[in-house]
Structures are given as structure tokens and as C-alpha cells.
């Protein structure tokens, strides 16, 4: 990575930390420990299942909210506050700024996810008293969640490069929700006819297919994840994020900073 991208990424991470973004971890810890104690008392035999389901879903939702809310302001806030002027009047290329911002946000989310993962494993240990071999599958689910974050970060940046924070949030959330039901959309496209079929197929393949990343339920039931799915999701997430980032760069390269 070129040095300027690393500096911009590190400053973006520092901004998130100083803006107390990682304070969400406290809410997460409270939620998870409360849930672990609660399910430990009311459920028999399924405590583990509940903790894994709840824990990983919380990791995913907390991360998505952070990715969208920070991501949508990454470019627009810098333009609005004019902090960008003193950055782009240095030997910094516009594309370096976008990529640096992306890595800064992605880094924030990875660190956030790392601490939340510790929380999930801690809660699991609390209810099950020991780890078993299938628990390692939780790492795969966490990996998929991080891949999902990369796509959302890139999309939020894309919207932020041309739109207001409010509209960007609406776009990003809509895509997240639609993307979570991408498989259903593809199913609908398969059943439709004529123009509707074409439109639905186009939309189904254009929106990010987040449903392929959701393996939380199967992992909670200790079902293995195919290596092919890991490879497919990795390639898909990197490709989708790269496309969204390219779009963001393309727009930002031609944008007048009034």
C-alpha cells in the first residue's frame, strides 16, 4: 500500500476512535453478557445455539450500522467541513484519498469485529464451559461478516462521493436490506416472465448478494461450510467492493469541491 493511503487510513481510524465509535463495544458487551446470563437460566441444551445466533447477528448489525453511518460521511463531511482542501492541495491523488478512507473504515470495523468476537467466544465459554471443535466455524461466520462489511463500506463511500449523508444512508440501508433478500429476488426473477423477468434478474445480480454471506444459523447448528463457498464469497466480496470503489473514485475524480 502506498504511504499516503496508509496515512489517510490511519487518520480515518484515529477519527473513529476519537469520535468514540468503539464505545459501541460497551453496548455490545452489555447485550451479550445479559443475553448469556438470561438464556443460561431459561433454556436447556440450546444455550449455545442462542448465544451463537444472537452474538453473531449482533456483530453483523452493529458493524453494518457503523459501516453505513461512518461511511456515508467519509467524503461528504470532508467536503462540507472543507478539511479536504488542505489534503488535496498536497501531493495526494484523489483516488488515494478514497482508497485510504476505505481502508481506514475497514480497519475500524475489523478491530471492532475482533473485540466483539472475543465477546462472543467469552459468552460461549460462559454458557458451555468449554470450546468444542465445531466452535471454530464461528470464525468462518465472522470472516463472512467482515467480507460483508467491506462491500457495505465501499457502497457507503460510493454514495458519499456524490450524495448527501442522508440520501447516502437511505441508499446504503436499502441496498443492505434488498441484498439480504437477494436469493429471494433471484427466485422471483426465475418465476417471472417477459420484461419483469429481465428487470428482476438485472436487479438481483446488481444488488450485493448478502444472503450468501449469512451462515450464522447453519453454524449455530454446527453444520460445516463448504470451502467453495468461502472461496466464492471472498472473490465476490472483493470484486464487488472493488467495483463500488472504482465507481466512487470515478465520480470523485471529476467532482468540483465548491
Amino acid at each position: 500500500m502506498n504511504a499516503r493511503i496508509a496515512y489517510i487510513a490511519s487518520n480515518t481510524f484515529r477519527e473513529a476512535v476519537r469520535d468514540r465509535v468503539l464505545y459501541n463495544l460497551i453496548a455490545f458487551a452489555l447485550l451479550l453478557s445479559g443475553a448469556a446470563i438470561f438464556v443460561g437460566q431459561i433454556s436447556i441444551e440450546i444455550e449455545k445455539l442462542v448465544v451463537i445466533n444472537l452474538g453473531l447477528t449482533a456483530v453483523s448489525l452493529f458493524g453494518v450500522v457503523i459501516a453505513i453511518f461512518i461511511g456515508i460521511g467519509l467524503v461528504s463531511k470532508e467536503i462540507e467541513r472543507r478539511t479536504l482542501y488542505t489534503v488535496l492541495s498536497r501531493p495526494v491523488r484523489r483516488w488515494e484519498f478514497i482508497i485510504g478512507k476505505f481502508f481506514g473504515l475497514a480497519g475500524t470495523l475489523v478491530v471492532n469485529t475482533f473485540f466483539m468476537a472475543i465477546g462472543v467466544f467469552g459468552a460461549l465459554l460462559y454458557v458451555a464451559h468449554k470450546f468444542t471443535r465445531p466452535d471454530a466455524l464461528i470464525l468462518v461466520a465472522l470472516y463472512f461478516i467482515v467480507l460483508q462489511f467491506l462491500i457495505i463500506c465501499a457502497l457507503a463511500l460510493l454514495f458519499s462521493s456524490f450524495s448527501s449523508p442522508l440520501l447516502s444512508a437511505v441508499f446504503a440501508f436499502s441496498l443492505f436490506v434488498i441484498g439480504s433478500f437477494a436469493e429471494d429476488l433471484r427466485g422471483f426473477a426465475g418465476m417471472a416472465h417477459g420484461l419483469t423477468r429481465w428487470l428482476a434478474t438485472g436487479a438481483a445480480y446488481l444488488v450485493p448478494n448478502f444472503s450468501a454471506f449469512n451462515v450464522i444459523s447453519s453454524i449455530a447448528h454446527e453444520q460445516p461450510v463448504a470451502g467453495q463457498l468461502i472461496l466464492h464469497n471472498t472473490v465476490y466480496a472483493l470484486f464487488y467492493a472493488a467495483m463500488a470503489l472504482s465507481g466512487a473514485v470515478l465520480i470523485f475524480e471529476h467532482r468540483n469541491l465548491k
Binding site: L84, N256, L257
Partner: peptide, 8 residues
């Protein structure tokens, strides 16, 4: 701004 490349 033109000289700084902030607007084109």
C-alpha cells in the same frame, strides 16, 4: 481553488 485542483 482552480490552482489547487479543487475545482476544474
Amino acid at each position: 481553488k482552480l490552482l489547487m485542483g479543487l475545482v476544474f
